[in-house]
C-alpha cells in the first residue's frame, strides 16, 4: 500500500464522527447544575437545622456521595452519565461513582484483593495529585509567611 501514516491520520480524522458538542454541553450544564443545586438545597436545610457552615458542607458532600452510591448500585448513574458526560463526572457524585463502581465490579475477585485493592483504581490519582498539590502549597505558604508576613 502506498499510504503513509500521516495521510492515514488525516483520513481517520475525517472519517470519524464528531461529538455533538452543543447537545453534550446542554446535558452537562443541566445535570451538573442540577447536582450542585441539590447540594445547595441540602446545605440550606442542614444550616437551618442548626449545623455550622463547615459541618453542613461536609454533611452535604456525604449525602451526595451516598445518593451517588445508591444510583451506581442500581445502574442508574451509568445510564445518566452516557448522556450527561461531564455533568455527572465533575461533581463529587462522579468521584463517588468512580470509587463505588470498581468496588462492585471487582467483588468477584474477593473482598481484599478485589473490593479493597480496586476501590481507588480510578479515583486514586485524584487523591494522589490533589494531596501532592496541597502539600506543595502548604510548604510554599509556610515560607511565604516567614519571609513576607
Amino acid at each position: 500500500m502506498k499510504l503513509t501514516k500521516e495521510e492515514y491520520q488525516q483520513m481517520t480524522t475525517e472519517a470519524s464522527p464528531k461529538s455533538q458538542v452543543v447537545r453534550d454541553c446542554i446535558w452537562a450544564f443541566c445535570v451538573g447544575g442540577g447536582i450542585c443545586l441539590l447540594g445547595e438545597v441540602l446545605k440550606y436545610f442542614y444550616c437551618k437545622w442548626g449545623l455550622t457552615l463547615t459541618d453542613a458542607g461536609t454533611l452535604t458532600s456525604a449525602t451526595l456521595i451516598a445518593l451517588s452510591a445508591i444510583c451506581t448500585m442500581f445502574g442508574w448513574y451509568q445510564k445518566l452519565a452516557t448522556k450527561a458526560g461531564a455533568g455527572t463526572l465533575v461533581p463529587i457524585t462522579g468521584f463517588a461513582n468512580a470509587v463505588v463502581s470498581p468496588a462492585i465490579e471487582f467483588k468477584t475477585e474477593g473482598y481484599i484483593t478485589g473490593v479493597g485493592a480496586k476501590m481507588f483504581v480510578i479515583a486514586g490519582p485524584v487523591i494522589v495529585y490533589g494531596m501532592l498539590a496541597s502539600v506543595a502549597w502548604g510548604i510554599i505558604w509556610y515560607f511565604w509567611r516567614i519571609l513576607f508576613a
Binding site: D24, Y77, Q78, A81, T82, S101
Partner: peptide, 17 residues
C-alpha cells in the same frame, strides 16, 4: 468491558467512534 475499559457501573460517556 471490565478487562479493556472501566467497571460496568462506572459513569463514562462513550466517544462516537
Amino acid at each position: 468491558e471490565r478487562t479493556f475499559r472501566t467497571p460496568l457501573e462506572y459513569g463514562g460517556q462513550r466517544t462516537p467512534t
